[in-house]
């Protein structure tokens, strides 16, 4: 059982995610951006950071690298794919989840702890939470404002995974900050579960995302 951690030049949460996968009982392996076949893996996580410096647009350059083919193959094989922060932006750019994460309402970078509601607990990543459970994790981004044209479909197919509870720090549509594809196996979240995986760091709520992946395999 192995979980891949995708690495681009400019990724900076790769080590954190690797550490947290192991903390959750999984086995992690780094995957460099030029690999396009890693079907031996059971799941992948695209960590946060600034792939290619986020030059042009967050995630835009990463979304046209060879590694995307490998990720799409895993999706076809119905293996879990989680994108966190920059990873979420990349999944949006590829089109594996609906909608986009764009420049915050206040365009400054914003790092703070937020309260979140687990809207959908039927994905592998959120299966350890109760529906509508309130959890705590930090956000850290300048381009995290979620927008989608067809919000009704998103709702009817239960594709909203996480919503800000209370304050919305970036102007996201309907406070949405985590979405999944129709299968629920591809999930994009702006908050950082790996930064909330040990009580001493402020919360261990985030560890459930990784335990969820490990348990689903």
């Amino acid at each position: 059982m192995k979980i891949g951690v995708i690495r681009f030049p400019g990724s900076n949460c790769d080590r954190d995610v690797y550490h947290t996968i192991e903390l959750a009982g999984g086995e992690a392996e780094y995957i460099w951006w030029n690999k396009d076949d890693f079907s031996y893996l059971d799941a992948v996580v695209i960590p946060g950071g600034f792939s290619y410096g986020d030059y042009l647009r967050a995630g835009a350059i990463a979304s046209i690298t060879p590694v995307v083919e490998g990720i799409k193959s895993l999706v076809k094989e119905e293996k879990p794919v989680l994108g966190i922060c920059n990873g979420a932006q990349i999944l949006g750019e590829i089109g594996l989840v609906p909608g986009i994460f764009t420049v915050n309402e206040n365009p400054k970078f914003n790092c703070e702890w937020v309260d979140l509601k687990v809207t959908n607990n039927s994905t592998p990543f959120t299966s350890n939470f109760k529906k509508n459970e309130i959890i705590k994790m930090p956000v850290a981004h300048a381009e995290g404002r979620y927008f989608v044209e067809d919000i009704d479909t998103l709702k009817s197919q239960d594709q909203i995974v996480l919503q800000f509870e209370g304050k919305i720090p970036n102007g996201s549509l309907e406070a949405i900050t985590g979405v999944c594809d129709e299968s629920g196996l591809v999930c994009a979240v702006m908050p950082h579960p790996e930064r909330a995986s040990e009580e001493i760091l402020g919360s261990s709520d985030g560890l459930n995302f990784f335990k969820g992946i490990v348990n689903s395999i």
């Binding site: 954190d16 947290t20 914003n110 930090p138 850290a140 950082h192 930064r195 760091l201």
Partner: peptide, 25 residues
């Protein structure tokens, strides 16, 4: 000021900015 800085990356930040000093495990 400190909201504009990523003060959590590398998952060591035990005490957040605003206290007397930074504590990193």
């Amino acid at each position: 000021v400190y909201k504009q800085y990523d003060h959590e990356v590398q998952i060591r930040t035990v005490v957040k900015p605003g206290d007397d000093a930074a504590v990193l495990k």
